[in-house]
Simulated assay, not measured.
Amino acid sequence: MKKYAIDFRLVREKLEKVTDFADFCRLIRQYDSCCSTRNDLRSASNSITTLKNIHEFAEMRKAYGEALVTHAVLMYTRSCHSKQSRRSNVGATKDFTSRHKACHARVVDLRDKVIAHFGDPIFFSGRDWVKERPTYIVTDDHEGLAFCSIRSIYNLDIVADLTEVISRSLETITKIIEEKDAALCVQIEERISDLRLKNAIESSPFQPEKFYHSAEAVRSYWENTSGSIHTSGYNLPNRADPDE
């Protein structure tokens, strides 16, 4: 029974200094980055879905709303805004319309000036997120300093903005992944007889048992073929024994 896996990030690292494998390694990096970006967007989408599901329940909204929207903002901006040295720019926002670009700007403003850092937000959704004032109270009974603060759990405008940009980004990145998957599979098929690729593959086993630390996750890995690099037709060499 054939059952083994290859770590293509390791394969890339072993071949990226080989000049005639530059395009091959670039495709692996792009595919890797695209899938990582999609995972962030899916995580953001899950938070927004959960937020909408609990919106009508005041206690749950109060307990979890702020955490969910903060997570969604951070995961979205991590995938579509932050400068990244280890992950390629994959073009998840390339299909944005002017409306999507406006939504994106408001989400980024909230992240940069309110959630991740302290600043002066440009847009109302950010300016209204946190209100704070140092005051001095004087009454007939007492006087003294008092710090006033109002913090939004979330507002529906930013939820609507997130819904728009996450949905469009996911559509785009899914199409890009399909293109990279197909291109990479063609490269594998064309190069599989190259001894340098064979050696890189044989010395780059992927062990889901060590990666996941969960029997259920390992089982799911072996059973799931969606979004994977389909190599069964390319007669790839067996992985090396990881314990050797």
Rank of each mutant, 00 (worst) to 15 (best):
N199W: 07
C103G: 00
V130Q: 08
D112N: 13
R239L: 05
P242N: 01
A160H: 11
H81M: 03
L74Q: 11
L41T: 03
S33V: 10
E143L: 05
Y234E: 04
T163I: 00
C185E: 15
D40L: 11
K3N: 09
V218P: 13
R12P: 04
L68P: 01
A146N: 12
V11C: 07
K113V: 00
T50A: 03
Q187P: 03
F118G: 05
A240T: 09
L51A: 04
K52M: 03
L51G: 03
T172S: 08
E56K: 06
L27W: 05
A102F: 08
T231M: 12
Y136H: 12
G227Q: 10
T174Y: 07
M1W: 04
H100V: 01
A102L: 12
T172Q: 08
E143T: 05
E164H: 06
L27T: 13
K131T: 09
E190I: 00
G227N: 11
H100Y: 10
I150S: 14
R29W: 12
D141A: 13
V90C: 10
N46A: 12
K3V: 03
L41G: 02
A200N: 06
S214F: 10
R106M: 06
P205T: 02
Q30L: 13
T19M: 04
A22S: 14
R87L: 13
K101A: 14
S82Y: 14
R38A: 05
R133K: 10
V11E: 11
D157W: 10
E190R: 04
I54E: 11
H213F: 14
R196G: 05
G91H: 06
S43K: 04
R239K: 01
N46F: 11
I115M: 01
V73K: 00
A63M: 06
L51E: 08
V165T: 07
V130E: 15
L10Y: 07
A182I: 00
A182K: 08
S98D: 15
T225F: 09
N46V: 08
R12S: 05
H100T: 01
P134R: 02
K62W: 05
D23H: 07
T174K: 05
N39T: 07
S193F: 03
T139I: 01
N224Q: 14
R12V: 00
A67V: 01
D140T: 11
I137T: 14
Y76S: 04
I48E: 03
I122W: 00
P237E: 07
A22W: 04
I48L: 06
T70V: 06
S203N: 15
